[in-house]
């Protein structure tokens, strides 16, 4: 049986979204949102936003730069939720209306950690 990092106990309902939304860098999470379809973004958003307060509270127990692996993965998923919210709460579509995809914008360096 393969052992891989999963989410902390009690957040199993978010597990199906990890692969797509918990990217390691801002650029990866932004790419996940920009290249996703709106129905998929909404599915993730609805489930994750309902657990958002609880998840952030769980992660806040640890220092930002020294989280256990499972908490770090949960936090990266929450950062993915921040990206998803840009589609749901601002545009009503994955990217700003009428803008090109793919495009030449590259995030060379994001905020740390998980940048």
């Amino acid at each position: 049986m393969s052992v891989r990092t999963t989410l902390p106990l009690g957040f199993a309902d978010l597990e199906p979204f990890v692969e797509q939304w918990a990217g390691a860098t801002v650029d990866a999470r932004m790419y996940a949102r920009a290249s996703a379809d709106m129905a998929g973004i909404r599915r993730f958003y609805e489930v994750a936003v309902a657990r958002g307060a609880e998840a952030l509270e769980y992660c806040a127990q640890f220092p930002l730069d020294a989280m256990p692996d499972d908490a770090a993965l949960l936090f990266r998923l929450m950062l993915g939720l921040a990206q998803a919210s840009i589609a749901v709460e601002i545009h009503g579509q994955p990217r700003a209306p009428g803008t090109p995809w793919p495009n030449s914008i590259t995030l060379q360096r994001g905020p740390s950690p998980f940048g």
Binding site: M30, A82, P111, F114
Partner: peptide, 21 residues
Amino acid sequence: NVYERFQQELYVGRVAEIVLE
């Protein structure tokens, strides 16, 4: 803390959208 980092993710995401526009 996680809240500040979460705010930054939103901020950077918005900035990138502004650049895209």
